[in-house]
Amino acid sequence: MMVQQCDYATLSQMFQRFQAANPEPQGELHHTNAFTLLVAVALSAQSTDVGVNRATHDMFQIADTPAKMLVLGEDALIDHIKTIGLYRNKARNVIRLCQILVDDYDGQVPSSRAALQSLPGVGRKTANVVLNMWWRLPAQAVDTHIFRIGNRTGICPGRDVNAVERAIEDHIPAEYQLHAHHWLILHGRYVCKARKPMCGTCIIRDLCPFEDKNL
C-alpha cells in the first residue's frame, strides 16, 4: 500500500528544516559551464557522481565546449571515461550531441526541456537537472534517491518517476521548489539511505510517517 501524501503544513515544516540546515544546496557533479554540466549529468546515468568527477577532471580542462569535444574525438573521450558504466555508448552520444550543438545551436546548450531532450542520450531527468542547476528553474529531476524517500516519507509518493515529479510540483510549496530536488537527493544519499536509514540523526524524523524507523 502506497504511503499517503503529506499535507501542506507538514511539507512546509519539512522544507523549512531542510532550508535552515542547508540554505543553498549544491549538486555534486563538477562543471564550469552549461555544456560541461550537460555532459557530466549525461555521463552520470548508472554511475556515481564521484566516478564521473574523477573521469571528467582532466577532460574538461581540454574540452569544455562542444567544438573542443569534437576535436578531442570519440576515441580520446573513451580513454577519459572508460572507468564509468556504459562508457562506449555514452561517448558516442556525447560526440553526437556536440555535433548537433555546433550545427543547430551555435555551440550553445539550449534552455528548453524539449530541445534538451532532443539531444542524444539526454532524457527528462538530465534535462531537468540542467534546467535547475544552470538556469535555476524549478525543474524536478527524480532519481532513485528521490523516488525512494518520496515513497518512504510521503513527501512525494508515486508509482513511477513521472508521478513523483508531479507530486513534487503539485504539493511542495512554491518557495521551496527551486532547491527541492537537491534537498531530497542529498537527504536520500546521506541520511534516508536505502538499507539503513539514519533516522536517529534525521531532522524530519518526527514528521515522517515511515513506521520502520532505524533508531
Results as ranks from 00 to 15, higher is better:
residue 150 G to T: 04
residue 127 A to Y: 07
residue 118 S to P: 00
residue 126 T to P: 03
residue 71 V to F: 04
residue 145 H to N: 05
residue 100 I to D: 06
residue 84 I to Y: 00
residue 96 R to D: 15
residue 173 P to M: 03
residue 126 T to N: 04
residue 81 I to D: 13
residue 188 G to T: 08
residue 195 R to H: 13
residue 90 K to Y: 09
residue 122 V to L: 11
residue 135 W to R: 03
residue 63 A to F: 08
residue 60 F to T: 14
residue 91 A to V: 06
residue 132 N to F: 01
residue 153 T to C: 14
residue 137 L to V: 14
residue 128 N to L: 03
residue 86 L to K: 02
residue 85 G to D: 11
residue 113 R to T: 06
residue 181 H to M: 14
residue 105 Y to G: 06
residue 142 V to I: 15
residue 78 I to E: 12
residue 128 N to H: 03
residue 190 Y to L: 00
residue 171 H to R: 11
residue 110 P to R: 02
residue 85 G to V: 08
residue 184 L to G: 09
residue 131 L to S: 11
residue 101 L to H: 05
residue 69 M to D: 01
residue 130 V to G: 05
residue 121 G to P: 06
residue 191 V to P: 01
residue 108 Q to F: 06
residue 139 A to R: 09
residue 182 H to Q: 14
residue 160 D to Y: 00
residue 113 R to V: 09
residue 176 Y to F: 15
residue 119 L to K: 02
residue 178 L to T: 11
residue 185 I to V: 15
residue 145 H to I: 01
residue 144 T to V: 11
residue 144 T to F: 00
residue 156 C to V: 14
residue 107 G to D: 07
residue 94 V to K: 01
residue 147 F to N: 07
residue 77 L to E: 05
residue 180 A to H: 03
residue 131 L to N: 06
residue 186 L to E: 04
residue 80 H to A: 09
residue 95 I to K: 00
residue 97 L to Q: 12
residue 143 D to Q: 04
residue 163 A to W: 10
residue 67 A to V: 08
residue 110 P to A: 05
residue 59 M to F: 02
residue 199 C to E: 11
residue 101 L to C: 12
residue 63 A to I: 01
residue 112 S to R: 00
residue 167 A to K: 09
residue 113 R to G: 08
residue 102 V to W: 13
residue 190 Y to R: 00
residue 188 G to I: 04
residue 140 Q to L: 08
residue 192 C to S: 09
residue 141 A to N: 05
residue 164 V to I: 12
residue 129 V to Q: 07
residue 195 R to I: 08
residue 162 N to L: 15
residue 101 L to W: 03
residue 172 I to Q: 11
residue 172 I to C: 07
residue 159 R to V: 13
residue 155 I to F: 10
residue 142 V to M: 04
residue 74 E to M: 10
residue 136 R to A: 12
residue 175 E to S: 08
residue 166 R to L: 14
residue 121 G to D: 09
residue 80 H to G: 07
